[in-house]
Design a protein around this nucleic acid. Structure first.
Lengths: 188, 188
DNA sequence: TTTTCCGTACAGACTTGTCTGTTTTAATAT
DNA sequence: ATATTAAAACAGACAAGTCTGTACGGAAAA
């Protein structure tokens, strides 16, 4: 079966590293092949084009992000704790990966004419976060109207995006801590 | 004089358009030459390499952003009006340019190993905004400690960055309006 | 035995940057 | 005003290397 083959796995592992470290365009097919230890013919057996690799990568990355985040949240109670975990998780990833910014925004910014499927994967990831925020804000002790919930979720979302950008410019976690504090204040 | 030559001007005008619409890597030297209506030899007389074009472009872009923003703010009183103008100006540019995100962050995200001079230009632009915010927050009627001013400026900065990302994902100005409203609330 | 993968050569188009030689522009000298 | 001279921009061929994607023949594995 192609979907779970050794080739596919190794290519995905490699591009997860390379696309993030170098960017999509700066990563050539030949480098992918070499570092995946896969033959070129095998790669093109699984992926019809480089663009298809990007698509698969983004889809994999969104689902992996979600499952890793859920894993990260295990043991944390719903409501404020879970919302703040979003910032903690971002900080963890940012440090681990050297402050190069959000995987998905990186791709969107690098490729202004991104194909539909890839863009859809990115939007799915953002939608997941937005829904998670709304659900957990609704669980908080303070009573809020649906409209207030919506607005607060939007605001925290904006802080989340903003601190990602800032931390990658600054190459440090400070803006993430700072945004987390702000979010905490807003929730009370 | 090289600095103000016709060649330089035309190349800068062209890459300002192309680098934003297509990205840096997707824009080839040959396209720059063709659309600038400049000979290749002339281009390389003024810029030793493509990287040098990028540097010059970023430096030009920061200073142009600043002067256009100051122009935009003419007639606006200092304090709240000027701070909110930041969001209004972002909205104006975003609409005009089709919601492809912040010029500078785009470059930083596309090229993880950006040369020092280019990165410095980007940081200068961010520093200008941060200082502008601090100065104008200090002018507001509400009394704030230096630390509070610092924190509020940081927060608005984060909203500013965040709404830029969101509006480019959404391809619409809504997140910018929303961040503006939030900022306004925070200032009071 | 049939699928999967391998190694590698290759096509064809693209890239940045160099080089040659010609033409235009503009300032200075007559 | 006209001739001279030096700088600047021109057009375009070319080098050397990169890129993605295809093809072919053989090896390993299920």
């Amino acid at each position: 079966m192609k979907a779970n083959s050794k080739v596919r796995t190794r290519v995905m592992d490699t591009v997860t590293r390379l696309f993030y470290d170098q960017g999509f365009q700066a990563t050539g097919i030949n480098q992918i092949i070499e570092e995946s230890e896969v033959a070129k013919a095998s790669l093109y057996e699984h992926f019809p084009s480089k663009e298809a690799i990007l698509q698969a990568y983004l889809e994999d990355a969104t689902t992996r992000w979600r499952s890793e985040f859920e894993e990260f949240c295990k043991g944390k109670s719903a409501g404020e704790k879970k919302i703040l975990a979003l910032f903690d998780f971002r900080k963890l990833l940012a440090i681990r990966r050297g402050f190069k910014g959000c995987t998905f925004i990186r791709v969107v910014y690098e490729l202004p004419n991104l194909d539909e499927a890839s863009l859809a994967a990115v939007l799915r990831y953002k939608e997941y976060i937005r829904n998670m925020l709304k659900e957990n804000i609704a669980l908080l002790p303070a009573k809020r109207s649906p409209r207030e919930i919506e607005e607060l979720a939007e605001m925290i979302m904006t802080l989340y995006e903003g601190c990602g950008v800032q931390s990658s410019l600054e190459r440090g976690a400070r803006p993430i801590d700072s945004a987390r504090k702000t979010a905490q204040k807003l929730l009370r």
